[in-house]
Nucleic acid binder design. Structure first.
Length: 188
DNA sequence: GGCATGATGGCCT
DNA sequence: GGCCATCATGCCA
């Protein structure tokens, strides 16, 4: 299966976010097909990078194709992949996967058996794949990560991002149309 | 130093 | 649908 090259991520975040739907994301061989993403950039009031570079968001200003992992609400980890032709703080949040590989390990980590709930949400998929702050700044094309081109281009729908209080009108959420593994359905 | 807030998720009614 | 756990970050004093 074809590994995505670093050049894949050296583009504007919304473009990368759309194209990431249908790719295969693995950590130590455990993971699945990306079915939901969201784009953020430095001009975006909802983005961590909006007010410039800080200690937490430094990875967002680093090389494209690397991970930005942060803690949400003091509880959950979330995974972004850094994007952009310029190091301006753009990234794509991975929001949901369709589980494919290492189901038993994911079920064990999540304490659940329902495949639909294993990776349906940014915090859930990080728990299922064992992603923590230790992976912040790591490149996606090297272990423990790997990210591969999908078998066929899916039908992608877009909509408003979830949980943002500013910039909520920007339709930068992308998903695999009709997937049963989304964190929330897309409104028609 | 203090405090309001959050790119969430799980459990309750 | 609502509440709340739980804490790092960032903004203000």
């Amino acid at each position: 299966m074809l590994l995505l090259p670093p050049a894949f991520f050296r583009r504007p975040a919304p473009e990368v976010a759309r194209d990431l739907v249908g790719t295969l994301l693995l950590v130590e061989g455990v993971g699945g097909v990306v079915v939901e993403t969201e784009a953020y950039d430095h001009q975006d009031p909802a983005s961590h990078s909006y007010r410039g570079r800080t200690a937490r968001n430094a990875a967002m200003f680093g090389p494209p194709g690397h991970a930005y992992v942060y803690r949400s609400h003091g509880l959950h980890w979330c995974l972004d992949i850094v994007c952009g032709p310029e190091p301006l703080g753009s990234a794509v949040l991975i929001r949901a996967l369709e589980p494919r590989s290492g189901l038993d390990l994911m079920q064990q980590r999540r304490g659940l058996s329902d495949a639909r709930l294993l990776c349906a949400g940014p915090g859930r998929l990080c728990q299922a794949l064992g992603i923590t702050g230790a992976l912040n700044g790591q490149p996606l094309d090297q272990p423990p990560f790997s990210i591969h081109a999908g078998a066929a281009p899916p039908e992608v729908v877009s909509g408003s991002r979830i949980g943002v209080t500013r910039g909520g009108e920007t339709p930068w959420r992308f998903g695999w149309a009709g997937s049963a593994f989304l964190s929330r359905p897309f409104r028609p």
